[in-house]
Simulated assay, not measured.
Amino acid sequence: MKKIALLGLACLVLSGCGTVQKTIKKEPTITMTEADINQLAQNNISKNMNELENKEGFKCDIYDSNGIHNWYFLEEFQFVLQNKLSPLKKSPILDSGKIYCVIDKYGNNIPRTYNVNVVERGLINNVEYSINYSDFSGNIGNDSKSSDNYWMFGCRTDKMNDKKECSADNYSANVSILKNKHGYLLQIGYDHYPGKKVSIRINKDKVLNSWREDGTFNYQISNNIIKSIKNNDVVYVRYVKWPYENEITNQLDVSYFKEVLRLLDTIYNLH
């Protein structure tokens, strides 16, 4: 009996004695190159973006993934509009423009959901501009709020009387051009000290002043000033800031002034 038991144990140890060894077959490993990943991601982006375009009734020329790594577009995901699009009579708004679908960097939920912002970008006389299709906000000039020739645009409609107004703002010089149905208003500064004037001087011309509390000139003077400014003029503005009665003097960069007015007029007519 002991011999039989020992033989059985030997058989188990040596995996012999009539038993059959099973070999586990490994599945082949599929290796994706960077080019494969990029192609698959772009295919998925195009498919999902086409579904959104057909649903919402718009068409983009370029998809901007906004620096998101293509790995994120290999899994299941969907696109939604970040904001409802405003009605458009013409797209692109300016003939030189291209329509970009800009994907928000931060997706959430499962399946992952990315917001999409629809933006027109192009050139006006070789000056870069951008218009957001949800509210017609935008910018023109060097892409930085700190740049002297950078202007931002925005529009608003009064909830009580439906009056609309759009503005172009140069934060470097604290100057705004407002446009409504009456024409242009030139506004200099903010947080104005009560009873103090605002001033503007173009080249070596006479200084023009306004004592209005909000730092604006009246419509007639504003229109005359704005229409007289040329892109190569030297323009200085001054106002007194509350609460310390600081006198602020800035040079207004008007390198793209004609282009700024054209974009402001265009956005106002669309809003």
Rank of each mutant, 00 (worst) to 15 (best):
M1N: 10
K3D: 13
I4V: 12
L6F: 12
L7F: 11
G8N: 10
C11A: 15
V13N: 03
G16W: 09
C17I: 09
Q21S: 12
K26M: 11
E27G: 01
E27C: 00
I30R: 05
T31F: 14
T31V: 15
M32C: 02
T33S: 15
T33D: 04
I37D: 02
Q39Y: 10
Q39K: 15
A41N: 06
S46F: 10
N48I: 04
L52E: 05
N54Y: 04
G57R: 02
G57E: 06
F58M: 04
D61R: 06
I62F: 09
S65P: 05
W71R: 11
Y72E: 13
F73Y: 12
E75R: 13
E76R: 10
L81V: 12
Q82H: 10
P87G: 03
K90S: 12
K90I: 08
P92Q: 09
I93H: 02
L94P: 07
L94N: 08
S96R: 09
C101M: 08
D104H: 11
K105W: 05
N109S: 14
Y114V: 02
Y114L: 06
V118W: 10
V119Y: 02
V119H: 02
E120C: 03
L123P: 01
I124R: 01
N125P: 07
V127W: 07
S130K: 07
D135E: 09
F136S: 03
F136W: 08
S137Y: 09
S137V: 07
N139I: 01
S146L: 14
D148Y: 10
D148T: 15
N149R: 07
N149A: 08
W151V: 03
F153A: 03
F153C: 02
R156D: 11
D162V: 08
K163T: 11
K163Y: 12
K164V: 14
E165N: 10
E165Y: 04
E165K: 14
S167T: 10
S167M: 11
S167E: 11
D169V: 14
N170H: 05
Y171Q: 11
V175K: 07
I177T: 03
L178S: 02
K179D: 04
N180H: 06
N180T: 06
N180F: 04
N180K: 06
K181C: 00
H182Y: 15
Q187T: 05
I188H: 04
Y190R: 08
D191C: 03
H192Q: 11
K196R: 14
K197A: 13
K197Y: 10
V198M: 01
S199E: 11
R201L: 01
D205H: 08
L208V: 12
N209D: 14
W211T: 11
D214P: 10
G215A: 05
F217E: 06
Y219R: 08
Q220P: 00
Q220E: 14
N224G: 00
I226H: 02
K227Q: 14
K227Y: 09
S228I: 06
S228R: 12
N232V: 11
N232I: 11
V234W: 04
V235H: 03
Y236R: 12
K241E: 15
W242V: 00
P243W: 10
N246E: 14
N246W: 11
E247C: 05
T249S: 13
N250K: 15
Q251F: 03
V254R: 08
V254A: 05
S255G: 04
E259T: 07
V260L: 06
L263D: 05
I267M: 08
H271N: 15
